[in-house]
Design a protein around this nucleic acid. Sequence first.
DNA 1: CACATCGGATAGTGCCGCTAACCAACGCGT
DNA 2: ACGCGTTGGTTAGCGGCACTATCCGATGTG
Lengths: 214, 214
Amino acid sequence: MRLAELSERSGVSTATIKYYLREGLLPPGRQVNATTAEYEEEHLRRLRLVRALIQVGRIPVATAKEVLGHVDDESLGRTMRLGAALWALPQPPEPAEDDAAVTAARREVDRLLAEVRWDSVRELGDLSPVHRSLVTTVATLIRLGYDWNAEELVPYARLMREVAARDLDFLETHESDAEKAEMAVAAAVLFEPVLRALHRLAQEEESARRYGIV
Amino acid sequence: MRLAELSERSGVSTATIKYYLREGLLPPGRQVNATTAEYEEEHLRRLRLVRALIQVGRIPVATAKEVLGHVDDESLGRTMRLGAALWALPQPPEPAEDDAAVTAARREVDRLLAEVRWDSVRELGDLSPVHRSLVTTVATLIRLGYDWNAEELVPYARLMREVAARDLDFLETHESDAEKAEMAVAAAVLFEPVLRALHRLAQEEESARRYGIV
DNA sequence: CACATCGGATAGTGCCGCTAACCAACGCGT
DNA sequence: ACGCGTTGGTTAGCGGCACTATCCGATGTG
Protein backbone atom coordinates (compact mmCIF):
# COMPACT_ATOMS: atom_id res chain seq x y z
CA MET A 1 0.00 0.00 0.00
CA ARG A 2 1.03 3.61 -0.50
CA LEU A 3 1.42 6.27 2.14
CA ALA A 4 -2.04 7.67 1.47
CA GLU A 5 -3.65 4.29 2.04
CA LEU A 6 -1.55 3.71 5.14
CA SER A 7 -2.86 7.03 6.40
CA GLU A 8 -6.46 6.21 5.61
CA ARG A 9 -6.43 2.75 7.17
CA SER A 10 -4.69 3.94 10.33
CA GLY A 11 -6.51 7.22 10.74
CA VAL A 12 -3.18 9.04 11.01
CA SER A 13 -2.56 11.99 8.71
CA THR A 14 0.08 11.63 6.02
CA ALA A 15 1.97 14.57 7.50
CA THR A 16 2.22 12.78 10.84
CA ILE A 17 3.27 9.52 9.21
CA LYS A 18 6.01 11.39 7.40
CA TYR A 19 7.05 12.83 10.74
CA TYR A 20 7.26 9.37 12.26
CA LEU A 21 9.27 8.12 9.30
CA ARG A 22 11.61 11.06 9.73
CA GLU A 23 12.00 10.35 13.43
CA GLY A 24 12.70 6.70 12.80
CA LEU A 25 9.62 5.39 14.62
CA LEU A 26 8.43 3.73 11.46
CA PRO A 27 10.78 1.88 9.11
CA PRO A 28 10.81 3.31 5.57
CA GLY A 29 8.71 1.56 2.94
CA ARG A 30 10.11 -0.29 -0.01
CA GLN A 31 11.12 2.40 -2.45
CA VAL A 32 9.56 1.61 -5.82
CA ASN A 33 10.89 4.68 -7.58
CA ALA A 34 11.64 8.28 -6.75
CA THR A 35 8.05 9.17 -5.95
CA THR A 36 6.53 5.94 -4.73
CA ALA A 37 7.12 3.77 -1.69
CA GLU A 38 5.28 0.60 -0.89
CA TYR A 39 4.18 -0.20 2.65
CA GLU A 40 3.08 -3.56 4.02
CA GLU A 41 0.61 -4.74 6.64
CA GLU A 42 3.56 -4.83 8.99
CA HIS A 43 3.89 -1.06 8.68
CA LEU A 44 0.25 -0.61 9.52
CA ARG A 45 0.62 -2.72 12.65
CA ARG A 46 3.76 -0.89 13.70
CA LEU A 47 2.06 2.45 13.10
CA ARG A 48 -0.84 1.44 15.33
CA LEU A 49 1.64 0.41 18.01
CA VAL A 50 3.42 3.76 17.74
CA ARG A 51 0.14 5.59 18.14
CA ALA A 52 -0.75 3.42 21.11
CA LEU A 53 2.60 4.10 22.78
CA ILE A 54 2.32 7.84 22.22
CA GLN A 55 -1.39 8.43 22.72
CA VAL A 56 -2.40 5.82 25.27
CA GLY A 57 0.95 5.26 26.94
CA ARG A 58 1.85 8.96 26.74
CA ILE A 59 5.40 8.05 25.89
CA PRO A 60 7.51 10.83 24.34
CA VAL A 61 8.40 10.31 20.71
CA ALA A 62 12.13 10.09 21.45
CA THR A 63 11.55 7.43 24.11
CA ALA A 64 9.21 5.48 21.85
CA LYS A 65 11.97 5.40 19.27
CA GLU A 66 14.38 4.00 21.83
CA VAL A 67 11.90 1.37 23.01
CA LEU A 68 11.15 0.28 19.45
CA GLY A 69 14.87 0.17 18.78
CA HIS A 70 15.19 -2.50 21.45
CA VAL A 71 12.19 -4.32 20.04
CA ASP A 72 13.88 -4.46 16.65
CA ASP A 73 17.28 -5.40 18.02
CA GLU A 74 17.65 -8.90 16.64
CA SER A 75 20.94 -9.39 18.44
CA LEU A 76 18.93 -9.87 21.62
CA GLY A 77 16.90 -12.89 22.60
CA ARG A 78 13.23 -12.61 23.39
CA THR A 79 13.66 -12.13 27.10
CA MET A 80 16.40 -9.61 26.69
CA ARG A 81 14.41 -7.64 24.15
CA LEU A 82 11.52 -7.40 26.53
CA GLY A 83 13.81 -6.44 29.38
CA ALA A 84 15.65 -3.80 27.39
CA ALA A 85 12.43 -2.33 26.06
CA LEU A 86 10.85 -2.16 29.50
CA TRP A 87 14.06 -0.70 30.87
CA ALA A 88 13.79 2.14 28.39
CA LEU A 89 10.24 3.03 29.34
CA PRO A 90 9.96 6.46 30.88
CA GLN A 91 9.98 7.02 34.60
CA PRO A 92 9.01 10.00 36.70
CA PRO A 93 11.78 12.59 36.60
CA GLU A 94 14.32 12.23 39.35
CA PRO A 95 15.13 15.48 41.14
CA ALA A 96 18.01 13.48 42.65
CA GLU A 97 18.29 15.79 45.60
CA ASP A 98 19.78 13.44 48.15
CA ASP A 99 18.07 14.75 51.21
CA ALA A 100 16.69 13.13 54.32
CA ALA A 101 13.44 12.14 52.62
CA VAL A 102 15.26 10.25 49.89
CA THR A 103 17.42 8.45 52.43
CA ALA A 104 14.38 7.43 54.41
CA ALA A 105 12.57 6.37 51.27
CA ARG A 106 15.48 4.23 50.14
CA ARG A 107 15.61 2.54 53.52
CA GLU A 108 11.88 1.78 53.45
CA VAL A 109 11.99 0.46 49.89
CA ASP A 110 14.92 -1.78 50.80
CA ARG A 111 13.04 -3.09 53.79
CA LEU A 112 10.01 -3.71 51.62
CA LEU A 113 11.97 -5.68 49.04
CA ALA A 114 13.57 -7.72 51.79
CA GLU A 115 10.22 -8.41 53.39
CA VAL A 116 8.62 -9.70 50.20
CA ARG A 117 11.88 -11.39 49.18
CA TRP A 118 12.23 -9.85 45.76
CA ASP A 119 15.88 -10.75 45.74
CA SER A 120 16.53 -10.25 42.06
CA VAL A 121 15.52 -6.61 42.06
CA ARG A 122 17.18 -6.14 45.41
CA GLU A 123 20.48 -7.17 43.91
CA LEU A 124 20.04 -4.71 41.09
CA GLY A 125 19.09 -1.97 43.50
CA ASP A 126 19.64 1.52 42.19
CA LEU A 127 20.68 0.22 38.80
CA SER A 128 17.07 -0.28 37.84
CA PRO A 129 15.31 2.92 36.74
CA VAL A 130 12.10 1.55 38.20
CA HIS A 131 13.70 1.10 41.59
CA ARG A 132 15.00 4.65 41.54
CA SER A 133 11.65 6.05 40.54
CA LEU A 134 9.94 4.15 43.34
CA VAL A 135 12.38 5.65 45.83
CA THR A 136 11.78 9.12 44.41
CA THR A 137 8.02 8.80 44.61
CA VAL A 138 8.06 7.48 48.16
CA ALA A 139 10.39 10.36 49.08
CA THR A 140 7.81 12.80 47.72
CA LEU A 141 5.13 11.18 49.84
CA ILE A 142 7.36 11.46 52.89
CA ARG A 143 7.99 15.13 52.18
CA LEU A 144 4.25 15.66 51.99
CA GLY A 145 3.99 14.38 55.52
CA TYR A 146 2.92 10.79 55.17
CA ASP A 147 4.47 8.70 57.91
CA TRP A 148 5.26 6.07 55.42
CA ASN A 149 6.71 2.67 56.23
CA ALA A 150 7.52 -0.54 54.46
CA GLU A 151 4.91 -2.63 56.23
CA GLU A 152 2.08 -0.70 54.66
CA LEU A 153 3.45 -1.35 51.19
CA VAL A 154 3.87 -5.08 51.66
CA PRO A 155 0.31 -6.08 50.73
CA TYR A 156 0.44 -3.86 47.66
CA ALA A 157 3.70 -5.46 46.61
CA ARG A 158 2.26 -8.94 47.01
CA LEU A 159 -0.79 -8.00 44.96
CA MET A 160 1.34 -6.50 42.22
CA ARG A 161 3.43 -9.63 42.19
CA GLU A 162 0.31 -11.60 41.42
CA VAL A 163 -0.56 -9.14 38.70
CA ALA A 164 2.92 -9.44 37.20
CA ALA A 165 2.69 -13.23 37.23
CA ARG A 166 -0.57 -12.96 35.29
CA ASP A 167 1.06 -10.54 32.86
CA LEU A 168 3.77 -13.02 32.03
CA ASP A 169 1.30 -15.89 31.82
CA PHE A 170 -0.70 -13.82 29.41
CA LEU A 171 2.34 -13.09 27.28
CA GLU A 172 3.29 -16.73 27.13
CA THR A 173 -0.20 -17.76 26.06
CA HIS A 174 -0.76 -15.14 23.42
CA GLU A 175 2.54 -14.76 21.74
CA SER A 176 2.35 -15.54 18.10
CA ASP A 177 5.63 -16.18 16.37
CA ALA A 178 5.39 -13.14 14.17
CA GLU A 179 5.53 -10.16 16.48
CA LYS A 180 6.54 -11.40 19.90
CA ALA A 181 8.54 -8.43 21.01
CA GLU A 182 5.98 -5.91 19.79
CA MET A 183 3.29 -7.71 21.72
CA ALA A 184 5.39 -7.68 24.84
CA VAL A 185 5.90 -3.94 24.64
CA ALA A 186 2.28 -3.27 23.81
CA ALA A 187 1.23 -5.39 26.74
CA ALA A 188 3.65 -3.64 29.07
CA VAL A 189 2.60 -0.18 27.97
CA LEU A 190 -1.10 -0.68 27.40
CA PHE A 191 -1.72 -2.84 30.41
CA GLU A 192 -0.89 0.02 32.70
CA PRO A 193 -3.73 2.27 31.57
CA VAL A 194 -6.06 -0.70 31.89
CA LEU A 195 -4.82 -1.41 35.40
CA ARG A 196 -5.04 2.27 36.30
CA ALA A 197 -8.60 2.47 35.02
CA LEU A 198 -9.56 -0.69 36.88
CA HIS A 199 -7.95 0.73 40.00
CA ARG A 200 -9.96 3.91 39.85
CA LEU A 201 -13.14 2.08 38.97
CA ALA A 202 -12.52 -0.16 41.96
CA GLN A 203 -12.08 2.91 44.13
CA GLU A 204 -15.37 4.29 42.88
CA GLU A 205 -17.11 0.99 43.50
CA GLU A 206 -15.64 0.47 46.95
CA SER A 207 -16.30 4.06 47.92
CA ALA A 208 -19.89 3.80 46.76
CA ARG A 209 -20.38 0.67 48.82
CA ARG A 210 -18.87 2.12 51.95
CA TYR A 211 -20.33 5.58 51.86
CA GLY A 212 -23.25 5.21 49.52
CA ILE A 213 -22.29 8.15 47.31
CA VAL A 214 -19.93 8.48 44.40
CA MET B 1 6.69 33.58 56.08
CA ARG B 2 7.40 35.65 53.01
CA LEU B 3 7.50 34.48 49.40
CA ALA B 4 11.28 34.15 49.46
CA GLU B 5 11.17 31.85 52.45
CA LEU B 6 8.30 29.84 50.94
CA SER B 7 10.49 29.41 47.89
CA GLU B 8 13.53 28.35 49.90
CA ARG B 9 11.70 25.85 52.07
CA SER B 10 9.86 24.27 49.16
CA GLY B 11 12.69 24.30 46.67
CA VAL B 12 10.43 25.99 44.13
CA SER B 13 11.68 29.21 42.52
CA THR B 14 9.88 32.45 43.38
CA ALA B 15 9.04 32.92 39.72
CA THR B 16 7.28 29.57 39.63
CA ILE B 17 5.42 30.28 42.87
CA LYS B 18 4.24 33.55 41.41
CA TYR B 19 3.08 31.62 38.38
CA TYR B 20 1.08 29.22 40.55
CA LEU B 21 -0.44 32.14 42.46
CA ARG B 22 -1.41 33.71 39.15
CA GLU B 23 -2.98 30.48 37.93
CA GLY B 24 -4.91 30.04 41.14
CA LEU B 25 -3.20 26.81 42.21
CA LEU B 26 -2.04 28.46 45.38
CA PRO B 27 -4.27 30.77 47.44
CA PRO B 28 -2.83 34.28 47.85
CA GLY B 29 -1.04 35.10 51.09
CA ARG B 30 -2.33 37.50 53.69
CA GLN B 31 -1.54 40.90 52.28
CA VAL B 32 0.31 42.91 54.93
CA ASN B 33 0.84 45.95 52.78
CA ALA B 34 1.41 46.78 49.14
CA THR B 35 4.77 45.04 49.00
CA THR B 36 4.50 42.28 51.57
CA ALA B 37 2.38 39.17 51.83
CA GLU B 38 2.51 36.66 54.62
CA TYR B 39 2.28 32.93 53.92
CA GLU B 40 1.55 30.18 56.42
CA GLU B 41 2.60 26.56 56.84
CA GLU B 42 -0.61 25.71 55.07
CA HIS B 43 0.69 27.38 51.93
CA LEU B 44 3.89 25.37 52.10
CA ARG B 45 1.92 22.15 52.34
CA ARG B 46 -0.34 23.12 49.48
CA LEU B 47 2.65 24.10 47.39
CA ARG B 48 4.25 20.72 47.95
CA LEU B 49 0.97 19.07 46.94
CA VAL B 50 0.83 21.14 43.77
CA ARG B 51 4.37 20.11 42.87
CA ALA B 52 3.51 16.49 43.57
CA LEU B 53 0.42 16.64 41.36
CA ILE B 54 2.32 18.27 38.51
CA GLN B 55 5.70 16.57 38.72
CA VAL B 56 4.90 13.11 40.02
CA GLY B 57 1.31 12.83 38.87
CA ARG B 58 2.04 14.61 35.58
CA ILE B 59 -1.23 16.43 35.85
CA PRO B 60 -1.60 19.54 33.64
CA VAL B 61 -1.68 22.82 35.53
CA ALA B 62 -5.23 23.60 34.44
CA THR B 63 -6.46 20.20 35.63
CA ALA B 64 -4.61 20.51 38.93
CA LYS B 65 -6.44 23.80 39.47
CA GLU B 66 -9.76 22.10 38.87
CA VAL B 67 -8.93 19.23 41.20
CA LEU B 68 -7.80 21.59 43.95
CA GLY B 69 -10.95 23.61 43.39
CA HIS B 70 -12.98 20.57 44.37
CA VAL B 71 -10.71 19.96 47.33
CA ASP B 72 -11.40 23.48 48.55
CA ASP B 73 -15.11 23.34 47.86
CA GLU B 74 -16.51 23.49 51.36
CA SER B 75 -20.04 23.12 50.10
CA LEU B 76 -19.27 19.44 49.59
CA GLY B 77 -18.94 16.79 52.25
CA ARG B 78 -15.80 14.76 52.61
CA THR B 79 -16.90 11.89 50.41
CA MET B 80 -18.20 14.19 47.75
CA ARG B 81 -15.03 16.22 47.74
CA LEU B 82 -12.99 13.12 47.19
CA GLY B 83 -15.33 11.92 44.49
CA ALA B 84 -15.38 15.23 42.68
CA ALA B 85 -11.62 15.58 42.86
CA LEU B 86 -11.03 12.07 41.57
CA TRP B 87 -13.61 12.65 38.87
CA ALA B 88 -11.62 15.61 37.64
CA LEU B 89 -8.36 13.70 37.35
CA PRO B 90 -7.16 13.43 33.80
CA GLN B 91 -7.93 10.46 31.63
CA PRO B 92 -6.40 9.29 28.37
CA PRO B 93 -7.83 11.35 25.51
CA GLU B 94 -10.90 9.86 23.94
CA PRO B 95 -10.81 9.76 20.15
CA ALA B 96 -14.53 8.96 20.45
CA GLU B 97 -14.61 7.27 17.08
CA ASP B 98 -17.48 4.90 17.59
CA ASP B 99 -16.20 2.05 15.49
CA ALA B 100 -16.40 -1.71 15.82
CA ALA B 101 -13.49 -1.85 18.24
CA VAL B 102 -15.17 0.56 20.65
CA THR B 103 -18.41 -1.37 20.49
CA ALA B 104 -16.64 -4.62 21.22
CA ALA B 105 -14.65 -2.99 24.01
CA ARG B 106 -17.79 -1.60 25.60
CA ARG B 107 -19.42 -5.02 25.50
CA GLU B 108 -16.41 -6.69 27.12
CA VAL B 109 -16.12 -4.05 29.82
CA ASP B 110 -19.81 -4.42 30.60
CA ARG B 111 -19.43 -8.18 30.83
CA LEU B 112 -16.44 -7.72 33.09
CA LEU B 113 -18.31 -5.41 35.46
CA ALA B 114 -21.23 -7.81 35.57
CA GLU B 115 -18.94 -10.74 36.25
CA VAL B 116 -17.22 -9.09 39.21
CA ARG B 117 -20.49 -7.50 40.33
CA TRP B 118 -19.36 -3.90 40.45
CA ASP B 119 -22.92 -2.76 40.31
CA SER B 120 -22.36 0.82 41.40
CA VAL B 121 -20.04 1.66 38.54
CA ARG B 122 -22.16 -0.40 36.20
CA GLU B 123 -25.12 1.83 36.92
CA LEU B 124 -23.06 4.91 36.23
CA GLY B 125 -21.75 3.41 33.03
CA ASP B 126 -20.52 5.92 30.49
CA LEU B 127 -21.09 8.77 32.90
CA SER B 128 -17.86 7.99 34.64
CA PRO B 129 -14.76 9.35 32.87
CA VAL B 130 -12.83 6.37 34.18
CA HIS B 131 -15.27 3.96 32.62
CA ARG B 132 -15.02 5.71 29.29
CA SER B 133 -11.25 5.71 29.37
CA LEU B 134 -11.21 2.00 30.14
CA VAL B 135 -13.39 1.34 27.13
CA THR B 136 -11.13 3.48 24.96
CA THR B 137 -7.99 1.72 26.08
CA VAL B 138 -9.46 -1.73 25.59
CA ALA B 139 -10.60 -0.62 22.13
CA THR B 140 -7.03 0.33 21.32
CA LEU B 141 -5.84 -3.08 22.40
CA ILE B 142 -8.47 -4.71 20.23
CA ARG B 143 -7.41 -2.62 17.25
CA LEU B 144 -3.85 -3.77 17.81
CA GLY B 145 -5.01 -7.31 17.36
CA TYR B 146 -5.41 -8.64 20.87
CA ASP B 147 -8.30 -11.05 21.00
CA TRP B 148 -9.41 -9.50 24.21
CA ASN B 149 -12.20 -10.77 26.39
CA ALA B 150 -13.72 -10.05 29.73
CA GLU B 151 -12.69 -13.30 31.36
CA GLU B 152 -9.04 -12.43 31.14
CA LEU B 153 -9.62 -9.16 32.93
CA VAL B 154 -11.58 -10.64 35.80
CA PRO B 155 -8.60 -11.60 37.97
CA TYR B 156 -7.07 -8.17 37.43
CA ALA B 157 -10.30 -6.53 38.46
CA ARG B 158 -10.50 -8.61 41.61
CA LEU B 159 -6.92 -7.75 42.51
CA MET B 160 -7.49 -4.04 41.95
CA ARG B 161 -10.60 -4.26 44.09
CA GLU B 162 -8.42 -5.52 46.92
CA VAL B 163 -5.99 -2.70 46.28
CA ALA B 164 -8.79 -0.15 46.33
CA ALA B 165 -10.11 -1.52 49.59
CA ARG B 166 -6.65 -1.08 51.08
CA ASP B 167 -6.50 2.47 49.70
CA LEU B 168 -9.66 3.42 51.51
CA ASP B 169 -8.58 1.67 54.69
CA PHE B 170 -5.37 3.64 54.52
CA LEU B 171 -7.25 6.90 54.08
CA GLU B 172 -9.48 6.19 57.03
CA THR B 173 -6.55 5.41 59.26
CA HIS B 174 -4.37 8.31 58.35
CA GLU B 175 -6.74 11.15 57.94
CA SER B 176 -5.97 13.93 60.29
CA ASP B 177 -8.69 16.48 60.77
CA ALA B 178 -6.72 19.29 59.26
CA GLU B 179 -6.23 18.37 55.65
CA LYS B 180 -8.52 15.43 54.87
CA ALA B 181 -9.36 16.28 51.31
CA GLU B 182 -5.79 17.17 50.39
CA MET B 183 -4.62 13.86 51.74
CA ALA B 184 -7.22 12.00 49.74
CA VAL B 185 -6.13 13.65 46.52
CA ALA B 186 -2.46 13.15 47.28
CA ALA B 187 -3.10 9.51 48.00
CA ALA B 188 -5.11 9.06 44.83
CA VAL B 189 -2.54 10.75 42.66
CA LEU B 190 0.67 9.61 44.30
CA PHE B 191 -0.42 6.05 44.92
CA GLU B 192 -0.58 5.39 41.24
CA PRO B 193 3.10 5.98 40.55
CA VAL B 194 3.89 3.78 43.54
CA LEU B 195 1.65 1.03 42.21
CA ARG B 196 3.08 1.41 38.74
CA ALA B 197 6.62 1.17 40.05
CA LEU B 198 5.75 -1.86 42.15
CA HIS B 199 4.10 -3.41 39.12
CA ARG B 200 7.18 -3.00 36.97
CA LEU B 201 9.48 -4.12 39.74
CA ALA B 202 7.31 -7.19 40.13
CA GLN B 203 7.58 -7.84 36.41
CA GLU B 204 11.35 -7.61 36.64
CA GLU B 205 11.41 -9.93 39.62
CA GLU B 206 9.04 -12.46 38.12
CA SER B 207 10.79 -12.35 34.78
CA ALA B 208 14.16 -12.85 36.45
CA ARG B 209 12.82 -15.87 38.31
CA ARG B 210 11.29 -17.48 35.28
CA TYR B 211 13.96 -16.80 32.73
CA GLY B 212 17.00 -16.08 34.84
CA ILE B 213 17.87 -12.86 33.04
CA VAL B 214 16.67 -9.32 33.47
C1' DC C 1 1.13 15.59 -23.20
C1' DA C 2 -1.50 17.88 -19.61
C1' DC C 3 -2.31 17.22 -15.00
C1' DA C 4 -3.24 15.27 -10.66
C1' DT C 5 -0.70 12.75 -7.29
C1' DC C 6 3.28 11.02 -5.03
C1' DG C 7 6.84 11.22 -1.28
C1' DG C 8 10.46 14.04 0.77
C1' DA C 9 12.25 18.37 2.87
C1' DT C 10 11.79 22.63 5.43
C1' DA C 11 9.96 25.87 8.14
C1' DG C 12 6.24 27.13 10.97
C1' DT C 13 2.33 26.54 14.60
C1' DG C 14 0.16 26.04 19.05
C1' DC C 15 0.39 24.74 23.53
C1' DC C 16 2.43 24.32 27.95
C1' DG C 17 5.23 25.05 31.93
C1' DC C 18 7.86 27.94 33.34
C1' DT C 19 11.30 32.16 33.72
C1' DA C 20 13.80 36.58 33.12
C1' DA C 21 13.23 41.34 33.45
C1' DC C 22 11.08 45.15 35.02
C1' DC C 23 8.56 48.15 38.30
C1' DA C 24 6.68 50.89 42.02
C1' DA C 25 6.07 50.40 46.99
C1' DC C 26 8.08 49.60 51.14
C1' DG C 27 11.21 49.07 55.47
C1' DC C 28 15.42 49.46 57.59
C1' DG C 29 19.88 51.33 58.87
C1' DT C 30 22.16 55.40 59.44
C1' DA D 1 14.96 62.26 56.67
C1' DC D 2 16.94 59.73 53.17
C1' DG D 3 19.19 56.29 50.36
C1' DC D 4 19.05 51.77 48.93
C1' DG D 5 18.28 46.97 48.90
C1' DT D 6 14.25 43.94 48.99
C1' DT D 7 9.39 42.85 48.29
C1' DG D 8 5.55 41.08 45.53
C1' DG D 9 3.05 41.76 41.27
C1' DT D 10 3.05 42.27 35.95
C1' DT D 11 4.43 41.36 31.34
C1' DA D 12 6.54 39.43 27.79
C1' DG D 13 9.35 35.78 26.21
C1' DC D 14 11.67 31.10 26.05
C1' DG D 15 12.35 26.19 25.01
C1' DG D 16 10.60 21.86 24.10
C1' DC D 17 7.42 18.96 21.94
C1' DA D 18 4.17 17.00 18.72
C1' DC D 19 2.75 17.83 15.00
C1' DT D 20 1.34 20.39 10.37
C1' DA D 21 1.18 23.47 6.23
C1' DT D 22 3.59 24.36 2.25
C1' DC D 23 6.51 23.81 -1.33
C1' DC D 24 9.05 20.96 -4.62
C1' DG D 25 10.46 18.13 -8.49
C1' DA D 26 9.53 13.39 -10.06
C1' DT D 27 6.10 10.37 -11.74
C1' DG D 28 2.01 7.63 -13.17
C1' DT D 29 -2.27 8.18 -15.70
C1' DG D 30 -6.11 9.31 -18.93
